[in-house]
Structure formats: structure tokens, C-alpha cells
């Protein structure tokens, strides 16, 4: 339950910023997840509800933003889009790809009261 620890990380960040930004309740949490971030959205949603119970983010809505990776195909000399890290270039079938990003796990913003 790796997503469970991630949600605990989210809660820590929320609690830290609650003190700094003076809010007492979180209504919505926006998370940016890179496509290769080893996070399963469904498991994340499930863990999120469980972890936030009884905290200042109890019942908060979780909005997940999918961030595609920046992939450059060396053979085609162009940017392409792939779903998985081991995918070949959809245009030429080559595996010579330069991948940057796609591993983001970031709390973007909160809607708070």
C-alpha cells in the first residue's frame, strides 16, 4: 500500500501549510501525477479517503491531474507521446527515446476554508 504512505505525505504537507497559511479545513486537493510516477489513481483515491478521515481534510475532494512525460524520439526527431516507459515510438517503432519528466507527484493547490 504504497499509495497509503503517499497520502500520509500529502497530509503532512497539508498540515504544515495549514499552520503557515492559517486554514482549518480543506475542501479540495489537486494532485499532479506524472504518467510514470508509479501511482495508481484508483488506489490513490481509496487511500486518500482513508488517510484524511478525522483530519482537517476529512471528506475533501481529490482532483488528479495527469501529466504526460516529455518524450523525444531520436529517430523521428520529434516529440511523441507514450503510455508506458517501455513503449516504442508509435511512429517508427524504435526504442531510442529520451524521456524527461513524467515522475512528478506534486500537490498543486488546495481549496481551503
Amino acid at each position: 500500500m504504497h499509495e497509503m504512505s503517499l497520502c500520509e505525505g500529502v497530509l503532512q504537507v497539508i498540515e504544515d501549510s495549514a499552520a503557515a497559511q492559517k486554514f482549518s479545513q480543506v475542501k479540495t486537493v489537486w494532485l499532479e501525477l506524472g504518467r510514470f510516477a508509479c501511482v495508481e489513481p484508483e488506489a490513490m483515491r481509496f487511500s486518500f479517503d482513508v488517510v484524511m478521515k478525522g483530519t482537517l481534510a476529512d471528506g475533501a475532494k481529490l482532483e488528479l491531474i495527469d501529466l504526460p512525460a516529455n518524450v523525444w524520439c531520436l529517430s523521428c526527431s520529434k516529440h511523441i507521446d507514450i503510455e508506458q516507459r517501455y513503449d516504442a515510438c508509435p511512429s517508427c517503432g524504435d526504442y531510442q527515446l529520451q524521456i524527461s519528466g513524467g515522475e512528478e507527484m506534486r500537490i498543486k493547490q488546495l481549496e481551503v476554508e
Binding site: 503517499l6 505525505g9 500529502v10 503532512q12 504537507v13 501549510s17 497559511q21 486554514f23 482549518s24 475542501k27 494532485l31 512528478e104 507527484m105 506534486r106 500537490i107 498543486k108 493547490q109 488546495l110 481549496e111 481551503v112 476554508e113
Partner: peptide
């Protein structure tokens, strides 16, 4: 109670 507002966090989940 206070009014709903947005807080920009832009922080990595694994930052700790």
C-alpha cells in the same frame, strides 16, 4: 469558519 480560498502549494508529495 472562513471563506473558501485557494492555496498554491506546488510541493512534491515526497518532499519530506
Amino acid at each position: 469558519l472562513s471563506q473558501s480560498r485557494m492555496v498554491q502549494i506546488e510541493q512534491d508529495i515526497l518532499s519530506k
